[in-house]
Design a protein around this nucleic acid. Structure first.
Lengths: 339, 339
DNA sequence: TTGTAAGCGTTATCAG
DNA sequence: CTGATAACGCTTACAA
């Protein structure tokens, strides 16, 4: 068995309370005894049991990161930002991949709660304004930061980019580049971010007094194959727009492939614009125009807010109704050769 | 405060031991009282405290996944395999991104140990045969599965692909395609997998009675920029091979870009072969020849071995000297247009 | 079938 | 400065 504080105490000939004090260099311990204790602890290869500590301190120094798909290049960057900063402050992060499944998301929330994480960062699968099942778990007394799809019915911490503006900029760019028929491809409308991006898209049409053609607005999911299939079918049916705004880069990439596979040329026949600016988008061979999101930064800011929140809660034993932070980052349109 | 087992007990008018039993549907509890307890638990929105449970059961249902770089597309796929399967069995996974820093790796191992994870899956930064600092922590009494760079001095669980063979196949393919001067680019030789891949590379030379030209063997790290810089310098200096085997796809992609940027043509002027088969490699615009690794599967097998090991340890309280599993997967060479 | 009580490895509160 | 001892929330003998 692993040595405990008691083993160290026995060896050192002191009470185990003293060992605890020495190890946490807390309060006053005679520097001699402390030195002795530290030595013995090292000798025994003693490692504190964080579980036991967590039980009494009600603080685990663990947080949960719930994301839909670690395989989508957007999320590893975010995760990396979260993890780096968390690690710096001595926190570990539970990776929770929901695989876009709402049930799994909810199960994770409960699980994380049972494991008594100090906080949760979540990029929800879908919009909680429609199906808010987070209540009763989240916002109970565990700090949460949302990364998108923030629930609408109240105040929450969140860090997002201005989706409306991003989509607006992208659409505007297409319009100004002379494209007349601009389609939109996204995930089903459960998601808030798609609502917002669609809104930005429509806003641009309005600003330029153009009509929206609903047959060019298609929904699927967030995956590359989906973009591929959708555009291919449109082209096959001979009914396709000459520009596409996709809700994310993966979708856009799929569209690009579909267009090429059908023997059409980008951007002459069909222009494509994405969202996210995953690394791939900037490849010389790809050159996808897209709305840039500062992924690492999003993660970093999220964890910073979370840590702040955790500290705050710790100090004021009572859960003050704090003013929640809503960080909205400005998107940038990066124009490349696909448009 | 969150309701505890005691709150439920009080409400139900039973001892809290009974509640515990009912909740874990263990042993015999009158079905009436059980039903009552379950109801009350639900009403109170009771959630068991996994920390407390972990303390007594000495089982946390958490595992650690230590990888060098979640941002390298290879690892999210592996992580996804691990996470899916872990989740299925009720385990959560701590994501530990070492960012290729050896110190961070070691810190993580200690941290995970302190958090009393039930097991660890690790893709070590470097070869423990040279700097084995894992001892004393790992293989103490916590199950570990290695994903590469398995220490050489003993028996360990590991799941890897046959690096020697993979590199051999790749090099052989280049040789048979008529390339005479074949270079190699990899990370510094601390890493075992590079040793192996280099070995396979050399083996192919030997088999065909060809001389190895050391000036075409270059070391850097695992990043794309590095591949880019190295090849660019070689070309600038007018001293470059007409084929390159890169240790991973990211490196290979960098090489491809470098070659193109210098106005040369792939594969006519310089052929490029990578390792991993990240999704990008198969893009129509990229078409990188590469050695395929079943990433998701690697993760899945690793977690399966780990869980098995955990169970085993649990049953036989004593740490039996089990026969460790060394799973070696066969690599496949996927030939595309870059060679 | 249920209750009592010990114990998991810490921290924290009192006395001394 | 240090030692007892009571938590923390749960599981699990051992009794009843």
């Amino acid at each position: 068995m692993n040595p405990t504080i008691k083993d160290v105490a026995k060896q050192a000939g002191v009470s185990y309370a003293t060992v605890s004090r020495a190890l946490n260099n807390k309060s006053v311990v005679k520097s001699e005894t402390r030195k002795n204790i530290l030595n013995i602890a090292r000798e025994l290869n003693y490692r504190p049991n964080a579980i036991a500590r967590g039980l009494v301190k009600k603080r685990t120094y663990s947080i949960g990161l719930i994301i839909p798909d670690i395989t989508n290049p957007f999320f590893p960057e975010v995760a990396s930002g979260v993890e780096d900063r968390a690690n710096e402050s001595g926190y570990s992060v539970f990776l929770c991949n929901t695989n876009w499944e709402r049930n799994r998301e909810i199960r994770y929330i409960y699980l994380l709660f049972e494991k008594r994480v100090d906080g949760i960062i979540i990029a929800p699968v879908s919009n909680s304004k429609k199906v808010d099942c987070f209540k009763g778990v989240l916002n109970k007394d565990i700090p949460v930061v949302y990364l998108s799809n923030t629930p609408q019915d109240g105040e929450y911490n969140s860090v997002i980019i201005d989706n409306v503006r991003g989509a607006f900029l992208a659409t505007k760019h297409l319009i100004e580049s002379g494209y007349k028929e601009i389609g939109f491809i996204g995930a089903p409308d459960e998601s808030l971010s798609i609502d917002e991006r669609l809104e930005g898209y429509k806003l641009a049409f309005k600003e330029y007094g153009m009509e929206i053609n609903n047959k060019y607005i298609k929904f699927g999911d967030f995956k590359q194959e989906t973009g591929y299939k959708i555009i291919k079918r449109m082209i096959t049916e001979g009914n396709y727009p000459n520009a596409i705004l996709a809700e994310n880069d993966l979708l856009a990439l799929g569209v690009m492939q579909g267009v090429k596979d059908m023997g059409l040329i980008i951007p002459e026949d069909v222009a494509v614009v994405g969202f996210d600016d995953i690394r791939l988008a900037s490849f010389p061979e790809i050159q996808l125009t897209t709305v840039y999101q500062p992924k690492y930064k999003i993660g970093k800011i999220a964890i910073e807010i979370l840590l702040e929140e955790i500290e705050k809660k710790d100090e004021a034993k009572v859960n003050i109704n704090t003013i929640n932070k809503r960080i909205v980052l400005e998107p940038d349109l990066i124009i490349r050769k696909s448009s």
